[in-house]
Design a protein around this nucleic acid. Structure first.
Length: 462
RNA sequence: GGCUAGGUGGCAGAGUGGUCAUGCAGCGGCCUGCAAAGCCGCGUACAGCGGUUCGAUUCCGCUCCUAGCCUCCA
């Protein structure tokens, strides 16, 4: 079964056919490192991590996700914090890595930094100038949009309308209001690099074109990022790359994830409703945050609130519950229905439904060869989503923020078991209530009593 | 104004031209000292109005509503 992907360029799902099946290439726009990552930064990281895992089942993959470490927001943060941009960028790059790892996001094969690719950008700008696709004006180098007939193809925008609807003031030195900056001058107090056009810094779009070319080649298979990047960022990347490559296409499949909203509103600084990943990790395990992000299809908007997270915890209880009861056969293969769902434009809700079907199968079969095979299939399938890879007991006995440590729980349980043995159920129930009050639930079974943490997200400000 | 997505049962969220999504919550049963977990069963869901069709939640048109982009915001 071929992988089918929704290509923004065509506004349709199409079968994925790699340019070179021996080297599939994917580039995803990563974060600008000027603050801690929020849940909206996490969504593309998780979604494209799943796609990378899926692609690797079929092809050798080179996956690049960049770090934007040249940006005016970084400059502003550095000024506020009274430090250098390198310090700010390094700090938040580390924070990004830490948070993404907590969400089970595997590192990409290449993680290029803009600061390390200025020569590539200068070279590309030089080629655009030589080809008549760019021009100098008052220390700036601008891309000549008129020179690229395909402009507007991705975002389905008409250049004339762009001009008419422009809400920004048009810089007087632009030949055409739609032209955008490739290189701009830097005053002495701002970071800058020497260039043929004087000391300056690159525009936002050129880094992705230059770094994708450097690490992946002229035409890449898949380019991903958030919905909001379609225009102008990706539109401009296409223009730059195609013109620098004598018309060779830039990316063959364009994928865009939907936004994460908070209580039905877009996250924004002015609304003060930005949800940081690190705040969520204080309330719940990263695996629950990851599952919550995958519970809606990646192209749909996802409304974030405490309930989605709490529900993700309960879902993981359900799935790990099956694995706790039946040992997984590690030799098992992923479930065909699950794979079919993922291959259908990364339909994670359907893939998760397949996981729950497997869980029920495991419970019905019990701890026998059939059950162990199903449990193995469940675990192996979930691995493609980056889920269910820890020991089930570790999941249920997680200690984050717990009132009672595991040994204390065990001690109380021993007491209760003794009480039950002498049929002192009042005492036994008292201990059970005490544990429940501390967020510990117990289950009496044939093999003794076992316990787990209640699936509630820790209370706290969002 | 232009361009995109959407409106599905109490909630979340897939999907389909004609028996099942799935999860959580709820109800009934089995199991249990009682619970929990698990299993079995249950619910007049597809914004509104027209149209196409033997048959539409699914296709077409219109209406209403929501969100995003057009501002270097994932």
């Amino acid at each position: 079964m071929p992988i089918t992907l929704y290509n923004t360029l065509k506004r349709a799902k199409e079968p994925f056919v790699p340019g070179d099946p021996d080297r599939v290439t994917m580039y995803v726009c990563g974060p600008t490192v000027y603050s801690h990552p929020h849940i909206g930064n996490a969504r593309p990281a998780v979604v494209f991590d799943v796609l990378a895992r899926l692609l690797r089942e079929h092809y050798p993959l080179v996956y690049a996700r960049n770090i934007t470490d040249i940006d005016d927001k970084i400059n502003a943060a550095a000024r506020e914090q009274g430090t250098g941009i390198d310090v700010v960028a390094a700090r938040y790059r580390a924070a990004y890595h830490e948070d993404m790892r907590a969400l089970g996001v595997l590192p990409p094969d290449v993680e290029p930094l803009a600061t390390e690719h200025v020569p590539e950008m200068l070279a590309m700008i030089g080629r655009l100038l030589a080809g008549g696709h760019a021009y100098e004006a008052e220390g700036h180098v601008l891309f000549r949009v008129r020179s690229f007939p395909g402009y507007g193809q991705l975002s389905r925008r008409d250049r004339r309308e762009l001009v008419a609807g422009a809400r920004v003031e048009v810089a007087p030195y632009k030949e055409d209001p739609a032209d955008f900056v490739l290189w701009k001058p830097s005053p002495p107090e701002l970071p800058g690099w020497e260039s043929p056009w004087g000391r300056g810094r690159p525009g936002w779009h050129i880094e992705c074109s230059a770094m994708a070319e450097r690490h992946l080649g002229e035409t890449i298979d898949i380019h991903g990022g958030g919905n909001d990047l379609i225009f102008p960022h990706h539109e401009n990347e296409i223009a730059q790359s195609c013109c620098a490559h004598q018309g060779a296409p830039f990316a063959r499949y364009w994928l865009h994830n939907g936004f994460v909203n908070v209580d039905h509103a877009k996250m924004s600084k002015s609304l003060g409703n930005i949800v940081l990943v690190r705040q969520l990790l204080e309330k719940a395990p990263g695996e629950a945050v990851r599952l919550a992000l995958l519970s809606a299809h990646y192209r749909q908007p996802l409304d974030w609130n405490d309930e989605v997270l709490a529900e993700a915890l309960r879902k993981l209880d359900r799935l790990y519950g099956a694995l706790r009861d039946v040992a997984a056969d590690e030799a098992a293969m992923p479930d065909p229905g699950f794979i079919a769902a993922l291959e259908d434009d990364i339909n994670t809700p359907r893939a998760l439904a397949a996981l729950f079907d497997l869980a029920r199968g495991v419970q019905k079969a019990g701890d026998n060869p059939e059950g162990r095979e199903l449990a193995g299939r469940l675990r192996r399938s979930a691995g493609l989503l980056g889920l269910l890879q820890q020991d089930p007991e570790a999941w249920f006995q997680r200690a984050a923020g717990a009132e009672l440590e595991a040994p204390q729980v065990e001690a109380l349980l021993a007491e209760r078991t003794a009480a039950r043995a002498r049929r002192d159920f009042a005492a036994a129930d008292r201990i059970r209530d005490q544990l429940a009050a501390a967020g510990v639930l117990i289950e009496d079974g044939a093999g003794g009593t076992r316990w787990r943490r209640a699936a509630t997200a820790m209370e706290g400000e969002p």
